[in-house]
Amino acid sequence: MNRRDATLSEPRWVRWSLTAIALGFLALFLAMPLVTVFFEAFRKGAGVYLASLTDPDALAAIRLTLLVAFIAVPLNLVFGIAAAWAIAKFSFRGKQFLITMIDLPFSVSPVVAGLIYVLIFGAQGWFGPWLQANDWKIVFAVPGIVLATVFVTFPFVARELIPLMQAQGSDEEQAALTLGASGWQMFLRVTLPNIRWALLYGVILCNARAMGEFGAVSVVSGHIRGLTNTLPLHVEILYNEYQFAASFAVASLLTLLAVATLVVKRIVEWRGACTLADRELPPEASPAALRPRAA
């Protein structure tokens, strides 16, 4: 180690103890819970594990979770693109306020997010009597679960796209228009390819949250087995019935989803960083989400 490095770094014992503290902390708080899920899931053997996953109620929960994500994610995808287009490509008053409003669902407690839909569509809510008269169920049924999920996953796509599209500006879109492209051609051939990695990144995060949401869904679900139970709610029910192995088996599915999300997120970050490097954007113009981490 030369002298320049010596003055700009810490003594070896400091470096080693800081690394040990950091890794110990992460092992305690992140790695051990991860290991625990799989350990507990297989504690009673692979037979119990498979039986827990192929139980009809578990299968119904898997189907419902997929259905909810299948509705909620595309809705927020379309919204995210529309919001990012309006915010990033045009200047108008109150833009910062609009961005704050879009981020709002992140700051609201999931329980409050569920509660507001009960207040509107519940038996004592605004539309409660009307819904009952027409024999429609929203709260304590699938539509309520979808609404609560849409609320909590609302900002994911938009907040990934807005900083990237702001950094990209609109030169390429203007060039496309000048060359005679229609609005949709410009969007499909110029804008969409430019934002595809950030879009994918937002969709992945949105999907992970949509499939894993617990608090908001728990308020509006009514916990009817086989009907309004999503996977996280199924985990809770099994856990509260002291069926720990089954509960952790179902939880391990959600954990695999989380790990897959992290892996895909890394790949997208890496690809996004490559794309950005190709385009030679100044590093400070790239959003934090797509910035390559130090290797």
Partner: peptide, 26 residues
């Protein structure tokens, strides 16, 4: 290091109910 770095995002991706039962078991 890259794995550790990726692991930091786990609480963002792991459903809260799963985190809850794993932590209480631990």
């Amino acid at each position: 290091k890259r794995i550790v770095d990726a692991l930091v995002d786990l609480p963002f991706a792991l459903p809260t109910a799963v985190a809850g039962i794993a932590l209480s078991a631990l």
